[in-house]
């Protein structure tokens, strides 16, 4: 605490205006305003960055969401139901599986159980985000925004966190725009599906694989990462080949990830 000549804290006992007596007043007062403006600016920038980073995801979702809308209609869902499913679920693989089981005449329970399996991998994704979000994004907001966690938003945000701290604005920009893209393309597919027969010609269906390839290249920095990546790819396909049902519920990704990450630990400890 800065003190005046008579030893009393500045302004506190002199009876005159505290602010004017304190030589640090200018630093206390005006910069505080500027910081909040600066923070606003930062939030906006982070939000914009999140939205920008969602563009390739949205492009990739377009054909997938569209196809989901078309197929959902064919499986007996109304346009509202198909769209609401994309609003409330936001799980591409899970939604397709639901349609598949519906069309095969399966039970409601089977669909939900299959979705428990398909979505288990998010436990792993979400847990691996915790060390990054901790102390950077308030838990309540972080949890709410995790609603928008998908394979794609996970990949993009993990890549971002290698060089930037996570912020709520960035996650909101990325996850919400991706979700809006998913919802909008579903709505379009369900409403217009019958008019458009083939979107393969546009070459858009390689957008998501291309994004995965890029992010994979960006994220494999350590030698152990390369080893983990190659073993995960190999294991994932091997498990899918040996136990074909894992191709449907994506359990092969979970098992391959657990084994490959553990192998990575071993390699890392040896060097």
């Amino acid at each position: 605490m800065p003190e005046s000549k008579n030893g009393a804290p500045n302004g506190a006992l002199t009876g005159r205006g505290y602010l004017l007596d304190n030589p640090l007043f200018l630093f206390y007062y005006f910069p505080a305003n500027n910081i909040s403006k600066l923070e606003m600016h930062m939030h906006k920038q982070e939000l914009r960055q999140g939205i920008n980073d969602s563009i390739p995801i949205v492009l990739g979702y377009l054909p997938l969401g569209f196809a989901f809308g078309v197929l959902a209609n064919e499986a007996g869902m109304s346009t509202i139901q198909a769209t609401m499913m994309s609003v409330l679920c936001f799980t591409g693989a899970g939604q397709y599986i639901a349609l598949g089981i519906m069309q095969a005449g399966g039970a409601v329970f089977t669909i939900i159980l299959a979705n428990v399996l398909v979505n288990l991998r998010y436990l792993l994704f979400s847990t691996s985000l915790v060390p990054y979000l901790k102390g950077q994004v308030p838990t309540a907001i972080g949890s709410l925004l995790s609603y928008g966690l998908t394979d794609e938003t996970y990949a993009v945000s993990m890549n971002r966190y290698q060089s930037h701290s996570p912020t709520a604005s960035y996650i909101a920009g990325l996850n919400l725009s991706s979700h809006i893209g998913w919802i909008a393309s579903t709505l379009l597919g369900a409403a217009l599906g019958t008019y458009i027969t083939n979107s393969d010609r546009l070459g858009l269906n390689f957008t998501l694989p291309a994004m995965f390839i890029c992010l994979l290249v960006f994220m494999t920095k350590r030698k152990a990462d390369v080893f983990v990546a190659i073993s995960a790819a190999f294991l994932c396909l091997l498990i899918g080949y040996l136990v074909p049902s894992t191709m449907g519920n994506l359990f092969n990704i979970i098992i391959a990830t657990i084994i490959a990450a553990s192998l990575g630990m071993l390699i890392n400890e040896q060097h």
Binding site: F125, L208, P209, F212, L216, A233, C236, G240, N252, A261
Partner: peptide
């Protein structure tokens, strides 16, 4: 261990999206 999850998941997703 968790730091290896992202490369492993991404590689698995890449493999599946390309090979299947």
């Amino acid at each position: 261990w968790l730091s290896f999850v992202a490369p492993a998941v991404l590689s698995g997703l890449t493999a599946l999206s390309v090979a299947a």
